[in-house]
Computed example of a mutant assay.
Amino acid sequence: MKKWVAAGCLVLASAGAAAATWTLTGDIVSHDPHLYKAANTWWIVETSDTGVGVKYSANGRAWTQGVPIFGNGLPWWGQYNGNKKQAWAPDLHEWNGKAILYYAVSTFGSQKSAIGLATASSLAQGNWVDQGAILTSAPGDNFNAIDPNFFVDKAGQPWLSYGSFQTGIYITRVDANTLKPFGAKTRLATDSIGIENPFIVANGSYYYLFVSKGKCCDGANSTYRIAYGRSTSVTGPYLDKNGVDMRNGGGTVLDAGGGRFIAPGAESISNGVLARHALDTQNNYTPVLFMSDLFFTNGWPTY
């Protein structure tokens, strides 16, 4: 569930202790950064007070804030977010020759939520057309329709993972033409401390499910951390390094933060790089963008 909304600018973020972490400059205040590299441009879409926030970079290191997508909001959002202009946790990809964007609209702590879809002829054109809500949830449902992640398995079948709190993270098939989910949903992960923001990648023989656990947005009390498990099937079961099923609270911690920057989460991966935000304890717990090269050592991710 997303509460903090990005605003402002920092000059530099560097995690020093990790050689694989990139030094970033420019507009690097970011909440729920979704990283996507297309051709010669790096893109980030992010949670924003005004539509879907957008950043771009020629080298992935110097970032410029762009014009938000649907900056005035859309009429149908109001039934889910109280007529606010904000959208949450967007997910950006290219598919079948066009750009696609999933995003969520809700209010903090609510199950009255929706995942929306927009398409454009290309990322560079940015001529986004909204396709409306493609998945919704209501109080009493066993899932929450936020935090979408589009993923294509090794057989070419697209999927959408999603979820937050309640009974955790789910995955559903996506129609290759309409880009809408269909069929049964399969539960991938849950945790009593809170779990959200699924992101799936493939490497070698495995699929890897990354999640954010804990509280994302509570200042010094924030407990967000990035965890993962792996499976030979996109629908799981995903087991951590100790063999614990992520449906039973498993998940090996990749990054728990510490020092100046705490509560890392809202992870995304593109072109071998993992992006996330972490809260700056010296700047009113503002969320800041971090990016690191992601490696797989003995079949497990690290940076």
Rank of each mutant, 00 (worst) to 15 (best):
S30R: 00
D153R: 02
G214C: 06
V152A: 05
N248H: 13
T107R: 06
N203M: 02
L254A: 05
G194F: 09
T281M: 08
P148T: 06
T186S: 11
L160N: 10
A138L: 13
A20C: 06
W76Y: 15
I169E: 08
F261R: 02
N203E: 15
L123G: 10
K213L: 10
S30T: 13
H277E: 03
H34M: 14
E46L: 13
F199H: 14
K55T: 00
D175S: 08
A104H: 07
D91A: 12
I200T: 10
Y170P: 01
L10A: 14
P237E: 02
I269G: 02
K180I: 06
N144D: 11
A15S: 10
W159A: 12
T232D: 11
Y285A: 09
G236S: 05
G16I: 01
N271M: 02
K37M: 07
V105F: 08
S161A: 15
A275I: 01
T178K: 14
G243E: 07
N144P: 04
Y224D: 06
G299H: 12
A176S: 15
S292W: 05
N127Q: 09
S121F: 02
S57G: 05
F165V: 04
G243D: 08
W95F: 15
F150I: 08
L123E: 09
N149C: 10
V253F: 04
Y207A: 06
K37D: 00
G259L: 05
S121N: 13
A184W: 00
P287E: 11
A18E: 13
N203G: 00
L101I: 10
A155I: 00
G140C: 05
A20Y: 03
L92R: 02
T297L: 14
Q125E: 11
A263L: 09
N242F: 04
R187Y: 05
K85Y: 05
D27Q: 06
A17D: 10
I69P: 05
D218C: 03
W63Q: 04
G272F: 12
D141C: 01
D218S: 14
G53V: 04
I69W: 09
A19D: 12
N203T: 00
T47H: 04
T297D: 13
S30A: 14
G82T: 04
N72C: 04
S57V: 08
A18F: 12
R187W: 08
C9L: 12
V29G: 02
K180H: 09
V174S: 06
I171D: 01
N149L: 01
Y170E: 00
W43I: 04
L74K: 07
M246Q: 09
F165L: 11
D153Q: 06
H93G: 10
N96L: 06
H93L: 09
K180R: 15
F199Q: 10
I134H: 02
L279R: 01
Y208S: 06
G97W: 11
V253W: 07
I195T: 12
N72I: 00
Y206L: 03
D240R: 02
I44P: 04
A99S: 09
